[in-house]
Computed example of a mutant assay.
Amino acid sequence: MAEIRAFNATLQTGNFTRAAALLSVSQPAITAQIRKLESRFMSPLLERFSKSVRATELGHQLYQITRQYHDLEAAIDALSNPTLAPGKMTLQVANASSLIFMPLIAEFSRRFPLTTLKIRSVTTSECRQLLLNREVDIGLFPLMNDNSELSRLAFSSHRLVAVLRLDHPLAHKSAVSVRELAAEPLIIYKPEAYTQQTLEQLFGRHQLTVSGNVVVDGRLDMSEAVYHGLGVGFALEQDFSSDSRLKVLPVTEATDDVIEHVVWMKNRRNLPGIRDFIHLAIEQRCGALSELSEL
């Protein structure tokens, strides 16, 4: 176990020095443990660089198995101390919808100020993969397909909208149809972006094809491309920050809600940090529903 801890800490922190600091041992001790582990496999587990390391294929396979050991230790601590709140720890979060989830993240930070939050802003598909690889603890994204390893909490919902310049011929309308949009130059996202997938599904249901000469990586680039006259852009409604230069219009046929979820590995639910984040999300979700019921 000492060898495994040294190996995992080195991969998690990126080099031997930080791994030694994490485990409160000397750097030579870390190096010795990893060499001993590699001798068991009679093959390198790490590629060494001047200031970092990277797992070999065999090392990656070993890490996928052994990274669960830390969860086991944390689960035992949580079982023996059921009221234990997260202390000085790091919670890794993969976030695909910052405007929706940042208030939740901020509230968690206020309640648990000793916890360091590491936030990775990535696409929906990347969020899912990072969770399954145990590279993050919490995912914030639309999880549309059931997965036996993942649990989810519906947190918010919104729909696809079109984004136009104020002087665009369609900007005076209260809503715009997919056929009107199909006749316009469109600003599109890379294929793995969830907004792009939603757009293509919508157009596909009406036997239309999404095409455009401008492909962007994110919503900020989309907004600037729209403002500079490169075409009509798209966003999920709550993901778009208000911009006085642009007009946001509902798409008439976009009647399906996209549900944003808080997502976690089922077998990690009771770990400190993850458990508390879930409880806070439930609390905020129930509070929002109570406010709606009073309107």
Rank of each mutant, 00 (worst) to 15 (best):
L220S: 13
R268F: 01
H206V: 03
W264I: 08
I274V: 15
A254N: 08
G231I: 05
I282A: 07
L230E: 13
E260L: 14
D243K: 03
H261G: 06
L271T: 03
R245C: 08
K247T: 15
L280T: 05
V258A: 05
R219K: 09
T252Y: 00
N267F: 09
D276S: 10
I278L: 12
H261E: 06
H261A: 03
V258R: 01
D239I: 09
R205E: 14
G231K: 06
T252N: 07
L246S: 06
W264A: 12
A235R: 00
M265R: 15
K247D: 04
A254E: 10
V258P: 00
A281D: 07
S244V: 11
L246C: 10
L208M: 10
K266A: 08
V258S: 03
V262N: 04
G229M: 08
Y227E: 14
F234R: 00
R269E: 12
R219I: 14
V232H: 02
L220G: 07
V258W: 00
L271R: 06
F277Q: 06
G233A: 02
D239F: 05
H279M: 12
V232Q: 01
L249M: 05
A225I: 07
Y227C: 09
S223N: 12
L280C: 09
V214D: 04
A235G: 02
D276N: 15
P250T: 09
H279L: 14
R205Q: 14
H228L: 14
R275E: 09
N267M: 09
D217Y: 10
L236F: 00
H228A: 08
S223P: 00
I278T: 05
H279E: 15
E283R: 05
G231E: 10
E224I: 12
I259D: 01
S211G: 08
R269S: 09
T255W: 04
D256P: 04
A254I: 07
V214L: 10
V226P: 04
S241K: 14
H206W: 13
D239R: 04
L249Y: 03
R205D: 12
S211L: 05
Y227G: 12
G212V: 10
E253T: 10
G233N: 02
A225C: 09
W264D: 09
G273K: 00
A225N: 01
S223T: 11
V232Y: 07
E260V: 00
V215Q: 12
T209H: 12
V262H: 05
D239N: 14
A235P: 00
R219E: 13
L208H: 06
Q238T: 13
S244C: 07
S211E: 10
N267G: 02
V251H: 06
A225W: 08
N270E: 12
M222V: 01
D256C: 08
V232M: 08
F234P: 01
R245A: 13
M222A: 05
E237T: 04
F240V: 01
D243A: 09
Q207R: 14
Q238P: 03
A281K: 08
V226E: 03
P272I: 07
K266P: 00
V226W: 02
S211W: 04
